[in-house]
Amino acid sequence: MVKDAPVDPRGPRFTACMTSAVLVVVLLTGWWPLLAVQALVFAASGFVSLGLNPWSHVYRLAVRPRLGPTSEREDAAPLRFAQGVGFAFALVGTVGYATGLSGVGVVATSFALVAALLNAAFAFCLGCETYLLLRRFAPAPVRPN
């Protein structure tokens, strides 16, 4: 477990766009190995470090130089939380597709895509909207950190 430094808020938006694209491909093709890879990416960046998400490196190397610097910073904890939730959906989706329950795969992938698209298009904060709800319905501590 690494404690991530605050990040340039445009990075996660870029990551959310790329993640959305991956999930759209999964939905349209039902090719579950791609979803399995996405689940691994979610797990690595949610539970270990945001720096393990390959899209954050693409952003740093290829996108940020074109955008110019910003002094804005965003805490890493909400992003890690969202990646953890994404992992849960991607895991269920992968298991669904791989075991022939493609309905489960489609629904779980759709939920992950809703969250990623809302983030990309509306700067949606998943932790804001769901953390207290999760704690209310699951009294056993939900502690991604």
Partner: peptide, 9 residues
């Protein structure tokens, strides 16, 4: 606020 909240800051 919570830790997992971006606009809280």
């Amino acid at each position: 606020s919570t830790t997992f909240c971006t606009p809280c800051r």
